[in-house]
């Protein structure tokens, strides 16, 4: 009885570890790249794995298609065991998993069409069917007129689109994207992310995406796992992770793109400029902070929005504001109490 029998789970990790052995016979050293990971990736989602370099995220994704063998633990993809399988036994599993790479890894000796056709040839498709499928895939990624070009004649974004077409050739259920936009400029990154979103929405393909950029997570991911030192330190929906990051690493990642809480040095400036009481309030879908403040203003409160940011993610509003509250002391107290009824209020210590 496997632990991942639910129809909605596509990839499941149970206490999975990966240990690399380096060095020679006399001085053997071991490096634990992935440590005791439990993770379920659901059918149809875009699942991001974020972490700094060396966090083990690239190794983690390579375990899924067996490019790196699991050292210990249980790993299953679409009901098929991956751990403990030989290279030959893994071949059928891999045919149902597409993969794209940071450096694209296209065959330089083959044309764009030849690259896309290659996996079909290996899968034994007839020449006629291959031709039709290649045309369909190139159409999907918008490179029909580039079919006869060689990879070296393409831009980075175009190369990655060929990579996507090639990875999807045999209609896999799962697409692994290893830092697939890290070698691209911001504009091209958006273009490739847009394509990945289409792959997910239009073709229903589950995507596991490795990145070190929170912007990428925000743009496409439904759920995200944060890795640090080989461990998954936090998993949650992207909205959850952005709104309420728990682990220290997660907070750092979130603040890399969403800096809504002032730093120490900024606080000093805020205190200098605002004589009132400084409080941090969380903004979310429901709360009506403006309404509360305007009512409090009628009560004699003087307030100022001193710092903060509000954003929308997966159709959820979230953010943090730093408010400066001034005026008669009882009016300020009443205002804080009123705010507490709609959101969390945190005093900024003097």
């Amino acid at each position: 009885m496997s632990p991942a029998d639910t129809a909605s789970t596509l990839v499941s990790f149970r206490d999975v570890s990966k240990v690399f052995e380096t060095g020679n016979r006399r001085r053997r050293r071991t490096v634990t790249a992935v440590e005791s990971v439990d993770l379920d990736i659901r059918r149809g989602e875009i699942f991001a794995v974020i972490g700094y370099s060396g966090a083990g995220k690239s190794t983690l994704v390579r375990l899924i298609n067996g490019l790196e063998p699991v050292t210990s633990g249980f790993l299953e993809v679409a009901g098929r065991r991956v751990d403990g399988r030989s290279e030959t036994q893994l071949a059928p599993v891999r045919r149902d998993i597409g993969m794209i790479f940071q450096q694209f890894n296209l065959f330089t000796s083959r044309t764009v069409a030849g690259n896309v056709e290659y996996p079909l040839k290996r899968a034994g498709w007839s020449a006629e069917n291959r031709k039709a499928r290649v045309a369909e895939l190139l159409e999907f990624v918008g490179l029909t007129e580039r079919a006869g070009n060689y990879p070296e004649q393409l831009s980075g974004g175009q190369k990655q689109r060929v990579g996507v077409a090639r990875a999807l050739a045999t209609s896999p259920e799962l697409l692994l994207a290893d830092e697939s936009t890290s070698a691209l400029d911001p504009e091209t990154t958006q273009e490739v992310l847009g394509l990945l979103r289409r792959v997910n929405r239009e073709l229903g393909i589950t995507i596991v995406l490795i990145t070190h950029e929170m912007d990428v997570v925000r743009a496409v991911a439904d759920r995200v796992a944060v890795m640090d030192g080989g461990r998954v330190v936090e998993v949650g929906s992207t909205a959850e992770i952005f709104a309420h990051p728990k682990a220290e690493t997660t907070r750092k990642f979130v603040s890399s793109v969403m800096r809504t809480v002032p730093r120490e040095d900024e606080l000093a400036t805020l205190r200098r400029d605002h004589p009132g009481r400084l409080v941090l309030v969380d903004v979310s879908d429901q709360n009506r902070i403006g309404e509360v403040l305007s009512a409090a203003a009628r009560d004699g409160l003087r307030f100022e929005i001193a710092f903060g940011g509000i954003s929308i993610l997966q159709s959820h509003t979230f953010g943090t504001l730093t408010l400066s509250l001034d005026g008669p002391e009882d009016a300020v107290t009443r205002a804080v109490d009123a705010l507490r009824t709609v959101t969390t209020v945190q005093e900024v210590s003097a």
């Binding site: 490019l67 071949a91 059928p92 599993v93 891999r94 045919r95 790479f101 890894n105 296209l106």
Partner: peptide, 12 residues
């Protein structure tokens, strides 16, 4: 990387 890509496709 090209060899890795081919391995990821399940090529013998």
């Amino acid at each position: 990387g090209v060899v890795e890509a081919a391995r990821s496709m399940g090529v013998s």
